[in-house]
């Protein structure tokens, strides 16, 4: 990552060896750096509503140790978190709260549907249960299982990290391209 520290003064545009402007070179290298750092510091907001919470706690605790992935710290404010973990059944009565939590998160933001209920509603095919959180918020990773094993949760986390590390747009960014450009 040469060139960040010894950037010339702002009055003089940065030049490469052939006299070409260097700004393009700098930004293309900055994006992977950003993606790498985001990948290994995914602060999470656990939105935990149901029995899947047991497996989530198990994954968080020392036996499976989610902190190995830089994803240890739960932030209890949506404004400080990167990933929204929707863990468990979401009912229609609760859907406005989930949507508000999601909207309060700062960009870029990702969403993981933890378990079958959060993904598609599970076996609660009835009057009260939202049939998958992607009906109201864009969702990046779906972890199947009722509940998923901790190994499956870690697999989902690693898939999300790879998605972040590739610099790929989150579902939110895909659906809001203008806002995503502002957020960088």
């Amino acid at each position: 990552m040469g060139g960040v520290g010894d950037r010339p003064p702002a009055s003089e545009p940065p030049r490469g060896p052939g006299g070409a402007p260097q700004a393009g070179w700098l930004t293309t290298k900055l994006d992977p750096l950003l993606a790498w750092s985001r990948r290994w510091s995914v602060f999470q907001y656990p939105y935990v509503t149901a029995c899947c919470a047991m497996e989530f706690m198990s994954t968080m605790c020392s036996h499976f140790d989610m902190s190995r992935f830089g994803a240890e710290i739960p932030r209890w404010s949506p404004r400080q978190s990167d990933v929204l973990w929707v863990v468990g059944t979401i009912v229609h009565k609760q859907a406005p709260a989930l949507k508000r939590v999601y909207e309060q998160m700062c960009e870029p933001k990702w969403v993981v549907a933890f378990g079958t209920c959060a993904s598609v509603g599970g076996f609660y095919d009835n009057y009260s249960v939202l049939q998958g959180i992607d009906k109201i918020i864009p969702c990046d990773v779906y972890i199947p299982g009722c509940p998923p094993r901790p190994e499956a949760v870690l697999e989902g986390l690693m898939l999300l990290q790879e998605k972040i590390g590739r610099g790929e747009l989150s579902r939110w960014q895909q659906e809001h391209p203008a806002a995503a450009r502002r957020a960088g």
Binding site: H92, K93, A95, P96, D134, K135, I136, E168
Partner: peptide, 19 residues
């Protein structure tokens, strides 16, 4: 009706294309 839903927030049933 067993399939009648009464959501409080608008549903996006036309989900965006899958990545």
């Amino acid at each position: 009706p067993k399939d009648r839903r009464q959501p409080l927030v608008p549903m996006c049933d036309d989900a965006p294309p899958q990545p």
